[in-house]
Design a protein around this nucleic acid. Structure first.
Lengths: 150, 150
DNA sequence: TATTGTTATACTCTATAACTATA
DNA sequence: TATAGTTATAGAGTATAACAATA
């Protein structure tokens, strides 16, 4: 088995485990990704967020609806251009994001538990090089597209 | 970004590129996977293959149908237990598999082009260790489940 | 009665594209 | 006229479960 296959296999495995973990917070990976994106760049327009997530706007709307109904996210109209709906985290969204972080760290530790600290650094460095080489930007990756919202 | 996320991102990227490449042979990744599985263990029952692919039998049947219509695969009834339909590669299936191999090698070379030979060996070793640690068996990985047949 | 393979059905998910409002 | 957001709809893909043949 080559590196390409191992990456696809381990990546799929990692994504599956992550989905299981965030399900404990009643979240799907794309929902977790949206929370993180809003933390990093609050006030983004829906259009821009949908683009980043690789989601068509028609799917993004109900996706945000459920998050807003749960009080995690808030739509605010941009007064300068009233066509734009800027998205913000609510306090509940912030605190859920705080619960998310230790979960992600446990996920990381679990997945790499077989590696020594030195090996971990090696692996991380190599993967970062490859990701940069392929112009994969940090953020929510396209594989998350297919995970269904609840 | 941690290793888990990088794996998911790179794995998804690798799977996507592989899907594009095999599309040149009018194959999807699960179809390519079935060809490989039949090369390795010819005469498997449909049930066993469906299990390995993580596909429910109801989806596996039309999946095999299209492969059989294209003359790549052949159903033979097991005379000892006439419930079983054993699957075999046809000659056309074998020769398509021969076309598949160089394609997979090009995919591997492309994805890892930024690594030195020494780094490539390091990465491969670390990924193999992780895969073994997580009991990921060689073969077609579950992420292929979601790729649609044509 | 259990198992393999098959078929049918009902359901979910999705994209396309029409529509509204703002610009 | 163009763009952000929304809604409606039709189509594809899926799993569940009923079914037939064989054991």
């Amino acid at each position: 088995m080559g590196v390409a296959f191992l990456l696809a296999q381990l990546g799929s495995h990692a994504a599956g485990l992550f989905a299981e973990r965030v399900a404990a917070l009643d979240l799907t990976p794309p929902q977790a990704g949206l929370l993180r994106m809003l933390k990093g760049s609050p006030g983004c327009s829906q259009r821009e967020l949908a683009d980043r997530l690789g989601m068509p706007p028609s799917r993004f709307v109900p996706f945000v609806d459920t998050m807003e109904e749960r009080g995690l996210v808030e739509r605010r109209r941009n007064p300068d251009d009233r066509r734009l709906h800027a998205l913000y985290l609510t306090e509940a969204g912030e605190s859920l994001l705080d619960e998310l972080r230790p979960l992600a760290m446990a996920h990381e530790a679990d997945l790499t538990s077989t590696l020594s600290p030195e090996e971990y650094r090696q692996l991380k460095g190599l993967l970062q090089r490859m990701a940069a080489d392929k112009n994969l930007t940090p953020g929510v990756h396209p594989g998350f597209r297919s995970v269904r919202p609840r």
